[in-house]
């Protein structure tokens, strides 16, 4: 059993290192990018990969490597931001519902049920479409349904610990609801909800780049993997590198984060 756990821990660490590298690349993409990702050059259009342009150039002569690197920032940052916002909203709603119960709980949970009753991506496409593109619109569109899973999880964990002796003790000490939630409930329910957040990163990334691909996410010329693939697929016959490199970046990033999520889940299950 111990051996098994050590093996699982090793998997978590390896996955976390890879994820960390990706995040670092995203953070320092401005420094790492060899060329200006937005500089167009009509004389260098659709250049095959070379020493100067490792990943080649696109239809406007922009450096694909630099755009992939800057795109990492757009994709990873917006994914993290969206997951974080959904996490925070979900935590607050879930703790309030679980701790106080009553009519607020009823109403908020009904709304959450309602959100889950509709297909997420259909809602996201319609909302993003109506909000008229832009990364903000895409994030709102995905966030409308995303907070619910966090809220449900936070609520059920709050319910399961709310009558523990230490919470009752805190109540008897005269602490108010806000204090109890911040100092006693939140630290105890943080882990399972955070793990849920981790497992959502891959799906969220697929969602954001999918919307960008449809033209409902980032606006040109901003670099984002989904929109880069969408733009470059028109001339994929002539310059396949302009599609294949951002595609590889997308797949690798999603695989790393999905793997990290799986590894952490399995490690926790083994505990």
């Amino acid at each position: 059993m111990k051996k098994q756990k050590a093996k699982l821990r090793k998997r978590v660490i390896i996955a976390a290192v890879f994820a960390g590298i990706l995040v670092l690349i995203a953070v320092f993409s401005g420094v790492l990018a060899p060329n200006d990702p937005y500089a167009t050059n009509s004389e260098l259009i659709r250049q095959a990969p070379s020493a100067q342009f490792l990943f080649g150039t696109d239809n406007l002569g922009r450096c694909v490597l630099s755009r992939v690197l800057i795109g990492a920032r757009t994709t990873i940052a917006s994914t993290f931001f969206l997951v974080a916002i959904s996490f925070i909203i979900g935590m607050i709603v879930g703790m309030l519902c679980g701790f106080y119960g009553g009519i607020v709980d009823d109403i908020l949970m009904r709304i959450a049920d309602l959100m889950l009753a509709f297909p997420q991506m259909v809602v996201a496409i319609a909302v993003a479409g109506i909000l008229g593109g832009g990364l903000g619109g895409a994030m709102i569109a995905l966030g409308i349904t995303m907070w619910t899973s966090f809220a449900r999880l936070a609520r059920s964990h709050t319910l399961s610990i709310k009558n523990e002796p230490y919470i009752t003790a805190a109540r008897l000490q005269g602490k108010n609801g806000l204090q109890i939630m911040m100092t006693h409930i939140m630290p105890n329910i943080l882990e399972p909800v955070l793990i849920n957040a981790l497992t959502q990163i891959g799906t969220t990334m697929i969602g954001i780049s999918g919307l960008s691909f449809l033209g409902l996410g980032v606006v040109a010329p901003q670099a984002e993997w989904g929109s880069m693939i969408s733009e470059a697929r028109a001339y994929i016959q002539i310059a396949p590198w302009a599609v294949l490199f951002p595609a590889a970046a997308t797949v690798i990033t999603i695989i790393v984060f999905n793997y990290l999520g799986d590894a952490v889940m399995e490690y926790r299950k083994a505990e």
């Binding site: 797949v251 999603i254 999905n258």
Partner: peptide
Amino acid sequence: FIGNALPNFL
């Protein structure tokens, strides 16, 4: 695992 990680547009 790989199939699950591939966005369908890709």
